[in-house]
């Protein structure tokens, strides 16, 4: 059994592969950020990626929608392999939602326009339809009354919820979260995590880089622990929080819990 398939329950194993990373390596200059990562994310699975800073976890999920370009190994997203073919990349990006640590909302557009922009221009939806969907999504993340405001007028938690709604508007098959709560004030973390839990319950395939252990324990199907660009251990939350195998995992968990 390869490391990528560790801790697969029978139920998960039977599902389709949504993200497959095989031997992914990535260098920034001379620094090797990823040292041959093997990870498989199954359909409707929630995978949480843990690790100390600099362990390459953000780099890994940024490689999956090609915000970073990996130099060796294969990444296959929903059956499409990531290559330099621009059409492939755009197709994958439009089906993989991404939520950033710094929200990265478009400051010159209203909340509503932030959400409808991609559906209108990439999916070629009619404006009225896109706006209807956007309002439903704002309803879902709990801030329909903010639709006409600009991002700069919202709190961090609200902005991050708008960012999630913006990604969902593209009806993605996969959602990537790159430390979605790390830039938030403590009292706003819960509101964002609630939205993410909702999504997970709705059956979204998710890959989440986070330090929120409560979220990981409650929602994740599997956890991945990375260090120095390597996948150290993969397992269920139960396995991780009760009986981790590797020394490095134990050390990390003891520091963070």
């Amino acid at each position: 059994m390869s490391i990528a398939d560790q801790a697969l329950t029978d139920d998960l194993a039977a599902r389709r592969d949504m993200i497959v990373c095989r031997g992914v390596k990535k260098w920034f200059g001379d620094f090797q950020a990823l040292r041959g990562v093997d990870v498989t994310v199954k359909d409707r699975e929630v995978m949480v990626v843990l690790g100390p800073s600099g362990s390459g976890k953000s780099t890994l999920i940024r490689c999956i929608n090609r915000l970073e370009v990996h130099q060796e190994g294969d990444i296959v997203v929903d059956g499409v392999e990531l290559t330099n073919d621009t059409r492939n990349i755009e197709k994958i990006r439009s089906e993989v939602g991404m939520v950033f640590q710094q929200f990265n909302l478009f400051p010159h557009l209203t909340v509503l326009d932030n959400i409808t922009l991609a559906p209108i221009w990439v999916r070629k939806k009619a404006k009225a339809e896109a706006e209807r969907t956007a309002m439903e999504l704002l309803e879902r993340v709990g801030i329909p009354e903010q639709a006409a405001k600009f991002p700069g007028q919202l709190s961090g938690g609200q902005q991050q919820r708008v960012a999630i709604a913006r990604s969902l508007a593209m009806e993605p098959k996969i959602m990537l979260f790159d430390e979605p709560t790390s830039a938030l004030d403590p009292e706003m973390i819960a509101e964002v995590l609630d939205v993410m839990k909702d999504l997970a319950r709705g059956g979204m395939t998710m890959m989440v880089v986070t330090h929120e252990m409560g979220f990981a324990r409650e929602v994740a199907d599997r956890l991945v622990f990375m260090e120095s660009g390597d996948v150290v251990e993969v397992g269920t939350p139960e396995h991780f929080f009760t009986n981790p195998k590797e020394e490095r995992t134990k050390l990390f968990l003891s520091q963070i819990l």
Binding site: L67, K91, R93, M98, F100, L105, V122
Partner: peptide
């Protein structure tokens, strides 16, 4: 840079 990344992540073309 985050603006470029957000636009890319949504699947916008370079021109868009």
């Amino acid at each position: 840079r985050g603006q470029y990344e957000a636009a890319d992540a949504l699947g916008l073309t370079t021109v868009q």
